[in-house]
């Protein structure tokens, strides 16, 4: 394996209840597609996308896991090597939000303690069916010390931002770990993919 084609490699694992739109988020980001009538994921899916952040090539290895209970023992095995976890729920589904503490327990049990966790409320295009308020989710994520973002895979809202900001954060984290403090870490929002230019800041 040659190291020449990228400067950083990060593993990102998406988790959350079945049907909250994990696969759609990944497809939207990696292929720019929103496939309607997506069947349930079997086991885990695997996608790669390379993005450029401050001129550095960052290879994102994205593991899209099945939300259904019977695949839990497969998906759990991927937590430990993950650099980041994207914990997803559906803003139109109270149940998917209520399950979050259970997911956090799993993270606690299986993931490395250095892992970055992002809470994502998906499907904001279905605003009229919203069951989980933004404030509730924000409070929850704050209490759990997680980053929080709402997205729409269908309308492509915040999807690029989600992954690119995460990549930025992972880079600064990696730099801190290797004690390369002399190199300025990219600030979130500096990430660029081929087709989009994001401008954003973290709450």
């Amino acid at each position: 394996m040659s190291m020449e084609d990228y400067d950083f490699l990060f593993k990102i694992v998406l988790i959350g209840n079945a049907g909250v739109g994990k696969t759609c988020l990944v497809r939207r980001f990696t292929q720019g597609l929103f496939p309607p009538g997506q069947g349930a994921t079997i086991g885990v899916d695997f996608m790669i996308k390379t993005v450029e952040i401050n001129g550095e090539k960052v290879k994102l290895q994205i593991w899209d896991t099945a939300g259904q209970e019977r695949f839990r023992s497969i998906t759990q095995s991927y937590y430990r090597s993950a650099n980041a976890l994207i914990l997803t729920y559906d803003i139109t589904c109270e149940e998917s939000f209520r399950c979050l503490p259970e997911w956090l327990r799993e993270i606690e049990q299986y993931a490395s303690n250095k892992v970055i966790t992002v809470l994502v409320g998906n499907k904001i295009d279905l605003a009229d069916k919203r069951e989980v308020s933004q404030q509730r989710a924000a409070e929850f994520s704050e209490a759990q010390d997680m980053y929080y973002l709402e997205t729409s895979a269908k309308e492509s809202d915040n999807v690029e931002k989600l992954f690119l900001d995460l990549a930025c954060r992972l880079i600064s984290e990696a730099r801190q770990n290797t004690l390369e403090n002399n190199v300025s870490s990219p600030l979130p929002g500096e990430g660029k993919s081929i087709s989009y230019l994001t401008c954003c800041n973290f709450n």
């Binding site: 497969i74 095995s77 991927y78």
Partner: peptide, 10 residues
Amino acid sequence: SIDCLCAMIN
């Protein structure tokens, strides 16, 4: 099962 294999490798 590939997923089963990968899980055990992990």
